[in-house]
C-alpha cells in the first residue's frame, strides 16, 4: 500500500505540491488525475524517492521514502515520464541492466527477462537496438525494466502518452494483469476517458492540492454529473479558469 500524508514540495517560488494526502491500495488501480502542471509528476517523483518532500509523510509498504529510500526502491517499479531507455542497447540489455542493479542473480534474471518479453509481447524486437523503436515499443521496454524485480508497487507517470489505440489497449491489459496478481498500481494521467476503463480509484489533483479521492462512482455522485469528463473538469478546478 502507498500512503501519502500532507506532503509539500516547493521549487523556488512555486508551491508544486500542497498538503497532498491519499492512499493507493493493494489489488487496486489508482489514477492520479489532474491537468498539466497540477503536481502529479512531482508527487510521483517523491514516491519514487528521486525528490524529497519538504514536509509530510510518504510511505510505501510502511517504509518512509525519506528515511528508508533503499527499502522503498526495492518495493517499487517506476516508469517515469518519457521512457528514458538507452537507445544503443537492445531491449533485452536495457532490462538486464536494471535487473543487475536490483541485484538479481544471473540465471534467475535471464529467466525473468524471458518471462517479461513473453508477457509484454516483445519477442519480435527484444534483441534489436532501441534506436528507432516506436513509442509503444519504448513504453514496453520501460515497463519491462520497471517490473524486472517483480515489485509489489508499480508507479507509472503518464504511461499512455503517445500510444495509439492498440498499444493503449495492450497497456490496459498489462495493468489489469498486475492488479489481479496483487499489485498496487498507481498511475498518472490527464485524460479522463482512458482512466475510466482502467482504474478503480481516482485521486484528482488541481493546483497542487487534492480535490477528490474515491471510486469512479463516488466521483460521479460527488460532482453530480454522469459524464466523467464533466465531473473531472468541475472537480479539478478547470471550470474556474475557463
Amino acid at each position: 500500500m502507498i500512503e501519502v500524508q500532507g506532503i509539500n514540495k516547493r521549487f523556488g517560488e512555486v508551491q508544486a505540491v500542497r498538503e497532498v494526502s491519499f492512499r493507493a491500495q493493494d489489488r487496486r488501480v489508482t489514477a492520479l488525475l489532474g491537468p498539466n502542471g497540477a503536481g502529479k509528476s512531482t508527487t510521483l517523483r517523491m514516491l519514487a524517492t528521486v525528490l524529497r518532500p519538504d514536509s509530510g509523510l510518504a510511505r510505501v509498504d510502511g517504509y518512509d521514502v525519506t528515511a528508508d529510500p533503499m527499502a522503498v526502491r526495492r518495493r517499487i517499479g517506476v516508469m517515469p515520464h518519457g521512457s528514458g531507455i538507452y537507445t544503443r542497447l537492445t531491449a533485452r540489455e536495457n532490462v538486464r541492466y536494471y535487473g543487475q542493479l536490483q541485484g538479481i542473480a544471473n540465471a534467475q534474471l535471464e529467466a525473468r527477462i524471458d518471462t517479461l518479453i513473453d508477457q509484454l509481447d516483445m519477442t519480435s524486437f527484444a534483441d534489436r537496438r532501441a534506436t528507432g523503436f516506436s513509442q509503444g515499443q519504448k513504453v514496453k521496454v520501460a515497463l519491462a525494466r520497471a517490473l524486472v524485480h517483480d515489485p509489489k508497487h508499480v508507479i507509472l507517470d503518464e504511461p499512455t502518452n503517445g500510444l495509439d489505440v492498440m498499444a493503449t489497449r495492450g497497456l490496459r491489459e498489462i495493468i489489469v494483469g498486475l492488479r489481479d496478481s496483487g499489485c498496487c498500481v498507481l498511475f498518472s494521467s490527464h485524460i479522463m476517458q482512458e482512466v475510466e476503463n482502467l482504474c478503480d480509484d481516482v485521486v484528482i489533483i488541481g493546483g497542487g492540492e487534492v480535490r477528490f479521492e474515491g471510486t469512479l462512482d463516488a466521483l460521479r455522485a460527488a460532482s453530480g454529473r454522469d459524464n466523467l469528463e464533466d465531473a473531472f473538469i468541475s472537480m479539478s478546478g478547470l471550470e474556474d479558469n475557463a
Binding site: R45, A48, T49, V50, R73, R74, G84, Y98, L101, A142
Partner: peptide
C-alpha cells in the same frame, strides 16, 4: 537518469 535513480 530519473529511472536510474529509482534503483536500489
Amino acid at each position: 537518469l530519473e529511472p536510474l535513480l529509482t534503483q536500489p
